[in-house]
Design a protein around this nucleic acid. Structure first.
Lengths: 185, 185
DNA sequence: CTACAAACATACGGAGGCGTATTGACAGCC
DNA sequence: GGCTGTCAATACGCCTCCGTATGTTTGTAG
């Protein structure tokens, strides 16, 4: 109960640190200072730093898988759902979430557990979105390819740092959306 | 001369560390150990650690901009050039280069200089590839949108960790390529 | 052979990080 | 009021890393 709350406050602060500076900046003593406590209690809630990181990973993985499941089991049309997802992850919707996403993916480059979590999340997302594309009449391979491009584009938004070269941004987004999501049949 | 060589060996080793573990793992004493020397000489070649990192950034930026310029000023058709680039960055062509790319982009999340370098590289790449799409008959906005998707897809290859859900991979790549690069007019 | 500069070695101080051990504070309950 | 479990404070040892200061070698020009 209350234990869970205190644990969660550590985890929450750890996610913030993860978002701001990657795994390497998730440091016990830094988190303690931010929570206005010393690290004395940390080792009550967690076995060690690795334990915290493992919980971070579980937490992130489960949340992402649950979210994509919720977002794709609406009673809207597949077309509308796809458009909705694209709009959702294409704006400055959730900077913290995007930062965590990128941090975890970078983490996955050097940690097998993180890589496994990312793989599970990606599989869930790709199959969910591919299912939506299949509802638009595409065969399995076509749908999977679209889903892959779909998520690539979303990550591209966070990853590509474009300066002034970009023309009117909203128009570009519209063109990309039109290329990714075929018109409703 | 020889000075440059010794410096470059530090820089080269630093790039390897960057590829393997991100900026935070570019550590003076670790590099020294790998180079079978002590850190005594490091501070002869570089002012401090930040100096090394700045040189890494310049080095990466210049190399990437030069490379994309070379790869897009061929005497092949725009269509063939686009296909070539897609094949090049879609296989396991250059794991080290891809790792450095991702590491720098993660670095850019917390460092303004890194962000500036990434921005310059992205602008160069996007405008170069957009020019190719324009040669295929697309207008400026359409070409830019295609270029954005083009690079998003390339990064998606490195970023999305897909497990067994993916069907035959080469077929998917072909479908993505067909969606990204329109047939020659 | 000498002299000087380039490059590395050695040794130090300081900071920040992890993990442990011990003690202290503050519940709720009997 | 005492007991016990929960959580935090304090203090310690150890390690890694940065940066500096100072020696030590090596190459090479004169």
């Amino acid at each position: 109960m209350n234990v869970k709350l205190k644990q969660d406050s550590w985890i929450n602060e750890a996610f913030s640190a993860l978002a701001e500076g990657g795994v390497d900046s998730v440091k016990v003593e830094v988190l303690a200072k931010r929570l206005k406590v010393t690290k004395g209690g940390f080792y009550w809630h967690f076995k060690n730093r690795g334990d915290l990181l493992a919980r971070l990973l579980e937490n992130w993985r489960d949340g992402r898988i649950r979210t994509i499941a919720e977002q794709t089991t609406t009673n809207q049309s597949a077309y509308e759902t796809l458009r909705f997802l694209l709009d959702l992850y294409t704006g400055p919707s959730n900077p913290r979430g995007s930062a965590i996403e990128l941090a975890v993916r970078d983490w996955a480059r050097t940690d097998v557990d993180a890589a496994a979590a990312v793989r599970e999340v990606d599989d869930a997302r790709l199959s969910s979105v591919a299912a939506l594309f299949e509802q638009l009449g595409l065969d399995a391979d076509q749908a999977y390819a679209r889903a892959f491009l779909f998520y690539s584009y979303i990550f591209g938004q966070s990853l590509l740092h474009t300066g002034g070269v970009s023309p009117n941004e909203t128009q570009i987004k519209g063109l990309c959306a039109a290329l990714l999501v075929p018109e409703a049949s």
